[in-house]
Nucleic acid binder design. Sequence first.
DNA 1: GGTCGGCTCAGGGTTGGCCCTGAGCGGCAT
DNA 2: ATGCCGCTCAGGGCCAACCCTGAGCCGACC
Lengths: 214, 214
Amino acid sequence: MTDQVRVVLVDDHALVRSGVRSEIGHAVDVVGEADDVEGAVEVITTQLPDVVLLDVHLPGGNGPAVIDGVRKAGVETCFLALSVSDAAEDVIAVIRAGARGYVTKAIASADLIAAIGRVASGDAVFSPRLAGFVLDAFAGEIPTSDVDPELDLLTAREQEVMRLLARGYAYKELASRLTISVKTVETHASSVLRKLQLSNRHQLTRWATDRRLI
Amino acid sequence: MTDQVRVVLVDDHALVRSGVRSEIGHAVDVVGEADDVEGAVEVITTQLPDVVLLDVHLPGGNGPAVIDGVRKAGVETCFLALSVSDAAEDVIAVIRAGARGYVTKAIASADLIAAIGRVASGDAVFSPRLAGFVLDAFAGEIPTSDVDPELDLLTAREQEVMRLLARGYAYKELASRLTISVKTVETHASSVLRKLQLSNRHQLTRWATDRRLI
DNA sequence: GGTCGGCTCAGGGTTGGCCCTGAGCGGCAT
DNA sequence: ATGCCGCTCAGGGCCAACCCTGAGCCGACC
């Protein structure tokens, strides 16, 4: 057991942490604990564990906040959500944030140890019921967004053309809509694709929808 | 080994089936095989296996078609997709249809046996790389739906072409992907647009996304 | 056996997307 | 004033998208 999996526990209840530690401590190397978001990010970024056992509900934020914080710190690790909650939205939220697994605290300790090992090796793991949630959740989701970095590469006119292009307008329609010539539209379109390093309007449509620009 | 997991193999290559059977036969109970969609549905609905090992690409349809067929027959079982493909869309498609796992044929036999056991117990299982696909897909997907009204206007092949078209594949890519000529793709594409009374692929993309077909 | 529908392919055509080059015009800054 | 930049346009070229027609193969149905 020389190279055990290094684990950090994040849970706001000390009782839970010590319980988990005593259940899995013989099989993994618990290198740190935390009871809130700030502390979790700090411990994780200093200890650099293989796996983080992460409670979904925390003071000062929640599970996703921890994951985001660690990501922003440039640290790569695997998160396994460990929660009393089996509410679909908690599961989805933490998976979206980047957790690679989700088990409830009802899990047997041997199973938890196995789950940690699997997550550490890059696998995904879910409690049976939760697997259903996650997979079924492919039945209806729309996510995130933020600001626009490379959008500034485009001039005002180019952005205007870009939006209409992404929306599926033909060059001719677009030209009459902006009351410019088709040739001008082509020029702008070409510039847009070049600046965004895209090769055709389908990619542009995906690019724009990903960024909620249309 | 009295109550082994009962498994049905679905793959269009006899060689693959016998190979898999010899690799896992000592650990699970292979109660049936099939090499196309129809046969698969029949074997599964009569044998009622615990787990179906399902190839994604089949004559007469594909993996999702088998899952749908079995569901419509009112039979509950667990599907584990076993494919050479690790294309994200294949993974997503079969997961959407209801598969509880997806592994590639590069898997070691011991791992496959373990995967079958986990799926049988209701767990979800993915090859490490594919776990990434599935979970990352939460970062930008729009899925499923219910039934299809005018979708029945399209033949099976046309639906296949339609999905890829709507997804933005060029005719040439689509042709090599389906291993048919570009001319055949054109013919199908033309039929699709005519039958759906659409005039180009942008409208098709919108049509398909509205109906959550892609 | 004949018919019909689905899948496959071909020839030959028009239109549109996309690129490159080149160029005139107006604002704005060094 | 000279030059950069954004907006406008044109010519000319390539290729992909889309259409129509026609045709061979095969399995299903009558």
